[in-house]
Design a protein around this nucleic acid. Structure first.
Lengths: 219, 219
DNA sequence: GCTACTCCTTGACAGTCGTCAAGTTTTTCT
DNA sequence: AGAAAAACTTGACGACTGTCAAGGAGTAGC
């Protein structure tokens, strides 16, 4: 059996590909690792106070490595924002999938809503920070709009399913539905950080009624 | 007619008071002037990118003067935030006062809502920026909460008056009512800066229905 | 074992930041 | 007019920023 030049080059190129791919994988893995460290630093300090050296201190590397894996600071932060999206955008899907009654769906949504408020509060304040930064600096805007759209879809899946289980229809558009619940979340977050747990509890108590306001029940 | 010592000291002290008051007035006037310059700089650049030298360039003074009138940067920005409140918190009162029918009130509110969105967009993005900063830096929080409360009251005056004219009652608490309309404003602002005027127009078209959703009409 | 390459550290750069002291200009009062 | 006080400018300080070049450490290939 002869070995043609094609075979050799094919094998060689395949080998090279595999090598290259493995290198790319390693490269991407470290990029992601550093982006996660960036995300945590941002969540702790906010956009305005986050420096590259501080980010590096939250990783196991020195500050110079950031310019080996990222073009510049904007590139790094953009990648961190994308990491946020991965974490945050499928949060309620399980609730939607497993709930069999409207009451259950609504109750579990409210529970999850305030659970993540307490557990991931720093991450959430970062999201709002970055969304606002996009009002000043257009370079984040595309990513922000994309994530915002995914958040809207996520909320819509919950509310439209709730309406379905209730035998009714949503009372407002996806956009309006989203901003209403997002507004409540933002306010709850503010009072959470203020330490004003009474206001948070009140928002929690009112949330079911607000959800009902967003769907038109069947007659 | 004799001139008693009391008279003299009284006159003298009154004169001194007047002098002191005038000096305080001058001092406060310049403080306010610099706070306004700060407000405009912040609205243009955002909190993260605003420096004292940039602020001074937006005034007619040099950067050193800022430490003559303000303790430090935080003091200056806090004062600027308070200036924002003065500008922004009575915006809809005239609409409430002059409207005689529910339709008129709703229509004029919507008009004013999107008018200030377009006209004062930089100032509004600053407000949301600073409100978010207060999630990271507690030193603004008290002022932010106060302003947020005034904004809530402002919205509540509109919606409760609308319900009254309609012969109904508000369907949600002041807090929920506020965050709903504020959420819509935030979203409209984001798409305004994106240049996505279609989405803004859609939000405008939907706003009357949302307002109706927030009041329970009489049977 | 030598070379070549990837990965990472170190240290320096030019610039900007908030702050403040020293000094100049302007105003105020007698 | 002259002295005192207020108002403002200037320049400098140490610290911090993003960026990057030089070089070390470690590994894979021959």
């Amino acid at each position: 059996m002869g070995v043609t030049i094609q075979d050799v080059t094919e094998v060689a190129s395949r080998k090279q590909d595999r090598l290259a791919r493995r290198q790319v994988d390693k490269f991407d893995a470290r990029r992601t690792e550093l982006a996660v460290a960036t995300l945590h630093t941002l969540a702790e300090l906010g956009y305005a106070r986050t420096s590259l050296r501080e980010i590096a201190q939250n990783s196991e590397f020195s500050h110079g490595v950031l310019h080996y894996y990222f073009e510049d600071k904007r590139d790094l932060i953009t990648e961190a924002v994308r990491q946020y999206e991965v974490v945050c955008v499928t949060r309620y899907d399980e609730v939607v999938a497993t709930s069999t009654t409207a009451e259950q769906l609504r109750a579990e949504f409210v529970a999850m809503f305030f659970d993540t408020l307490g557990r991931d509060a720093p991450l959430h304040r970062l999201w709002y920070d970055l969304r606002n930064q996009s009002l000043f600096d257009g370079s984040f805007r595309a990513d922000v709009l994309e994530i915002d759209g995914h958040r809207q879809d996520m909320v819509w899946r919950v509310v439209s399913r709730y309406a379905e289980l209730l035998g009714g229809t949503p009372a407002a558009s996806p956009g309006t539905t989203y901003v209403t619940l997002d507004g409540i979340f933002q306010r709850a977050l503010l009072h959470h950080f203020t330490g004003n747990s009474g206001t948070v509890a009140q928002l929690r108590a009112e949330l079911p009624a607000v959800i009902d306001l967003l769907v038109t029940k069947a007659e």
